Simulated assay, not measured.
Amino acid sequence: MAPFYIFYMIVINFFVVFAKTTISSNLSNSTTVRLTFGFYKGTCPEAEPIVFARVAKAVSEDPRMAASLLRLHFHDCIVNGCDASVLLDDRAEFEGEKTAGPNINSLRGFEVIDAIKADLEATCAEAVSCADILALAARDSVLISGGPGWEVQMGRKDSLSASKSAANNRIPNPNSDIATLVSKFQAVGLSPRDVVILSGAHTMGKAHCSSFSSRLNGNANINSPDINLEYLQALQQLCGSSNADTTLANLDLATPAKFDNQYYINLLSGKGLLPSDQALISGDNGARQLVESFVQDPTSFFNEFKRSMLKMGSLGPSTRGIGEIRRNCRVINKFNQ
C-alpha cells in the first residue's frame, strides 16, 4: 500500500489548489448538488489510497479496465444522478440497470468495484459510498492512463433502487447524431460543450462491432469529406468475418490504452469509431471548432475534461438524507443482512 499511497498523494496534492479555486466555482447550477473536498479525511482517511491501489492493480492486469471504470461512472451519473444505481443487481422488487440496452454485455468492471468495497469495509465499515467509489475509480483510471488528476468532491449516498427504463432512455446511443447527444446531455444539466469534452473519454477503450454497424453496412455517406474510406474498409474487414456481438475494435487505433487528445485527431482524420463520435465534426460547427482546439492544445482538453468530470460527478439528488451507504454495492442494505 505504501508505494501507491506516496504516488497518489504526490500527484493529487498537485491538483488540489486548481480544483478548489477553479472547478468548484463552476458547480452551482440547479442540477448539481453540494459535495465536499476531503469528505473522508475524518471518517476514512485511507479511502482514496485504497481505491487508487485497486484501480492501479486492475489496470496493470487489463489496460482496457481504465476505460471501463470511467464508463461505469458516466453510465451511473447520466441516469438519475451519481448514486451507484448502475451497480445494483436485479431483484424481484425492480429491474436493475445492468440489463438495459446500453449496458447489457457492455458495461464491465463490477468485480473491481466489489474488491474496492471489500477493502474499504474491512478498513472503515459503512463509511464510503459506492457512488463515491465510482467517482474516485474514474478519476484514478484517467490519471493512471496518463491523463489529468483532480481532487474529487465526495459525500454522495447510494440509491435504494434503480431504473432500467431511465437507463434505456437517457444514455446516448452510439448511433446518435449531435442534436440527440446535446438533447440527452442538456436533459441532465450538461451543456453542448460538455458533450464534446466528455466524448474525449473515447480516447481509451474498445467497442463491439455491433455498436457501429451503421458505419459499415452502407448507411455512411461515402462522399462526405469526414469519411475515411481506408479506415472504414479496415473496420469492415475486422467485423465482417466474425460475430459482431463479440468482436471488439479500439476506439483509438493509435494509443488505445493512453488518455490523450488522440481521439480528436482521429475525428479530423475521419477515424472516429462510433457514429456518435464522428457526428461531433459533421453536424455542428461549434463542436468542430472545439475539437480542432483540442487537437492544437492538449493541455486545454485536460483542463476542460477535469471541469466537466467534476460537473458530471455532481449531478443527482441531494446527498444528505437520501439513500444509504451500501455494505455491498450490488444490493441495498435491507436485503444484505
Rank of each mutant, 00 (worst) to 15 (best):
L120C: 10
A127I: 13
V142M: 10
L134W: 02
L134I: 04
L120K: 07
K164P: 06
E111M: 05
S106H: 10
K164A: 01
G155K: 03
A137K: 05
S165R: 06
R108V: 14
K157E: 14
A138C: 11
V142Q: 05
E111Q: 10
W150A: 08
G149L: 03
D140C: 03
R156W: 01
S106G: 00
S159P: 00
V142Y: 14
E126C: 00
A135K: 12
C124Q: 12
K164I: 04
G147D: 04
E126D: 12
P148Q: 13
A127C: 12
S165I: 15
V128K: 02
G149E: 06
M154L: 15
V152N: 02
I116S: 03
D114G: 07
S141M: 05
R156E: 04
I133K: 01
E151H: 12
S161K: 11
A118R: 06
L136P: 00
L160H: 08
G146R: 06
L160E: 10
E126G: 06
A137I: 08
L143P: 01
A138P: 01
A127Y: 06
S161Y: 14
A115V: 10
A131M: 13
G109E: 07
F110V: 01
I133N: 00
D119E: 15
A118D: 10
L134G: 02
E151F: 15
A115W: 04
K164V: 04
I144E: 04
L160F: 14
G146P: 09
M154Y: 03
S145F: 06
V128A: 09
L136C: 05
S129N: 02
S106A: 08
A127W: 09
S161L: 09
P148Y: 12
A137P: 00
